[in-house]
């Protein structure tokens, strides 16, 4: 793994190892390269939704049918999905890992983007536990997120605090764009 950047292929490898079956998503700018990497992984089915509020209910249905889905949406989309988070994740005790694009995030905490400003207060308000992932060095937290979701029967958020790097066609790494 390469330190300092977050490579989608490393996250995909973790999802495969964790037995993820479906990736329910509405793409965003932070996770665009993740979309490309997942399209190349045949064991995970991509489920694109039209609006973020659909993602958690679709994942709930998949879980009830015996599948192992994750959700990937942007922070602004999570706000739109608030009632679904309330009723069909927290309310039913759904063990669901949600990857949340942390639009506007920087390490200094100084951002004019309200999508970033409100993410962590929003998660605290809903009592959703979370990790922030900013590089490949942080990826050991992903399996812990799955363990915590399963142990508590509650959703657990993994906030993606940087843009995924673009993987070059040759397989060598390049920096995020």
């Amino acid at each position: 793994m390469i330190n300092g950047v977050l490579h989608p292929k490393n996250v995909v490898a973790q999802l495969v190892e964790l037995g993820v079956s479906h990736y329910v998503t509405l793409p965003d700018s932070e996770t665009a390269h993740m979309y490309e990497a997942l399209m190349a992984e045949p064991s995970i089915t991509m489920v694109p939704v039209s609006r973020e509020g659909e993602a958690i209910p679709v994942a709930a249905g998949l879980f009830v049918a015996g599948q192992n889905p994750v959700v990937s949406i942007q922070n602004a989309g999570l706000y739109e999905a608030g009632d679904a988070l309330r009723g069909l994740a927290l309310g039913i005790g759904l063990p669901l890992v949600m990857f949340i694009g942390y639009r506007g995030h920087n390490r200094m905490g100084d951002t004019a983007d309200t999508a970033a400003k409100y993410l962590e207060p929003f998660l605290h308000m809903w009592r959703v536990d979370y990790f922030v992932i900013e590089s490949d060095d942080d990826l050991d937290r992903v399996p812990i997120a799955f363990e915590r979701a399963a142990k508590t029967n509650q959703p657990f958020a993994v906030a993606i605090g940087t843009e995924y790097a673009k993987e070059s066609p040759s397989g060598t790494e390049s920096e995020g764009e």
């Binding site: 329910v24 209910p57 679709v58 009830v64 049918a65 009723g87």
Partner: peptide, 22 residues
């Protein structure tokens, strides 16, 4: 049966997840 009683408007989305999952 599932009666969607606490997931405003989302019956169709839960049904989609079930259909894909089984």
């Amino acid at each position: 049966d599932i009666g969607i009683a606490n997931g405003m408007s989302k019956a169709s989305s839960v049904a989609l997840g079930l259909a894909l999952g089984d």
